[in-house]
Simulated scan of single mutants.
Amino acid sequence: MSDDYDTPWKDALTRYFPEFIAFYFPAAYRAINWTIPHVFLEQELAQVVHDAETGKRRVDKLARVALLDGAEEWVLVHVDVQGNYDSNFAERVFIYNYRIYDRYRRPVASLVVLADGSAKWSPDSFSYSLLGCAMGIRFPTAKLNGFAPRLEQLLGDENVFALVTAAHLLTQQTRGQHVQRRDAKFRLARLLYERKWDKQRIVDLFSVIDWMMYLPPGLQKQLMDDINGLEKERGMPYMNSFERRGLERGREEGRKEALSDLLTRQLEKRFGQLPDSIQERLKEAEPADLQHWGETLLDAPTLDQVFNRC
């Protein structure tokens, strides 16, 4: 419950969309005219997914892009950051695609990135047929664990999402190994400082890595002290004290939100719709309380007993 993915993925995808497409879907990247700015269609996507079954650990982005032949087309990106097998995932991609066509009469390219750890699950289609009628969709899929054999190559790649993917893989490899994660995180930070990137890009990418690779407070302080030393060594003060405090606040708020969302889903799955009072309590709770309730949930036979109300 400590590793948070949805917000950093959304931030990185939004800020560096062309590089996202270039890294995971190079054929699509080559077909798009990137000299014409892309436009995110937030309202259009919201209309389509309003009533859909969506998990809170997924990132969906709908964008309008210009192709090399001058046509304007729509691209729908799904990043499944939950990291779990989902037998309904391909169907969901199909539903979103046809809902967009149904509402807007626009063809849409669905592109999928999967963060689960399975070596076998790689959905790339959904279809059905009945009485001579066939309906379905095929879509490109990029699996993050498929990049694992290329980890060292990723660390040398200049694409933003090479480092984001490396951070994801290192997060998975160091789960429960805090010292090793601290070392991996510092290695990524050092690589950022070695790039000839502008300050904003380095700060943005460190925010993503920092959010992904959660460390206990003591090790996090050690890491930030080491990064401060690295900045002084290189004469590159990218993060002032205000920005550092902002990173810490945003990181803790994001962790709290992720814990609250996960516990809410677990409680609803076991006990059904939660009373408004419980939902409010979950939103206002501190991370320590949320973790305690998550542990209590394992054995508590009733919702009241989860919260020690009887």
Rank of each mutant, 00 (worst) to 15 (best):
M1S: 11
Y5D: 09
K10W: 14
A12H: 03
L13M: 13
Y16D: 05
F17S: 05
P18K: 04
F20I: 06
F20W: 09
Y24R: 00
F25K: 01
R30Y: 07
N33H: 02
V39M: 05
L45H: 01
L45Q: 01
Q47K: 13
V48E: 03
K56P: 10
K56L: 13
R58K: 13
A63H: 00
A63P: 00
R64N: 09
L67M: 14
A71V: 13
E72S: 13
E72I: 10
E73L: 07
W74A: 08
W74S: 07
V75N: 06
V79D: 13
D86K: 06
S87D: 15
A90Y: 00
A90W: 00
R92S: 11
F94N: 03
F94H: 07
F94G: 04
Y96V: 09
N97Q: 15
N97F: 06
Y98L: 11
I100Y: 02
I100H: 03
R105V: 14
R106K: 10
A109P: 01
A109E: 12
L111W: 03
L114R: 04
A115S: 11
D116K: 00
G117N: 09
W121E: 12
P123V: 06
S127P: 00
S129M: 08
S129A: 13
S129W: 07
L131E: 15
R138H: 15
F139N: 02
P140S: 09
T141R: 01
T141K: 00
G146H: 03
G146T: 02
P149H: 04
G156L: 08
D157T: 06
E158W: 09
N159D: 08
A166M: 00
L170I: 01
Q173S: 13
G176D: 03
H178A: 15
R182V: 10
F186E: 14
R190E: 15
L191F: 04
Y193R: 07
R195G: 04
R195Q: 10
R195L: 03
R195E: 06
K196H: 12
W197I: 05
K199H: 11
I202S: 08
D204P: 03
S207Y: 11
W211R: 12
M224Q: 12
M224W: 15
E231K: 01
N240D: 15
E243G: 01
R244W: 12
L247M: 12
R249Q: 12
K256G: 09
K256R: 15
A258D: 13
S260N: 04
S260E: 11
L262E: 14
L263A: 02
Q266H: 11
E268N: 02
R270A: 09
R270S: 05
G272D: 05
G272Q: 04
I278F: 06
I278M: 05
I278Y: 07
A285R: 00
E286G: 02
L290A: 04
Q291T: 14
H292L: 14
G294W: 02
T296L: 13
L297E: 03
L298C: 10
D299S: 15
A300L: 05
Q305L: 15
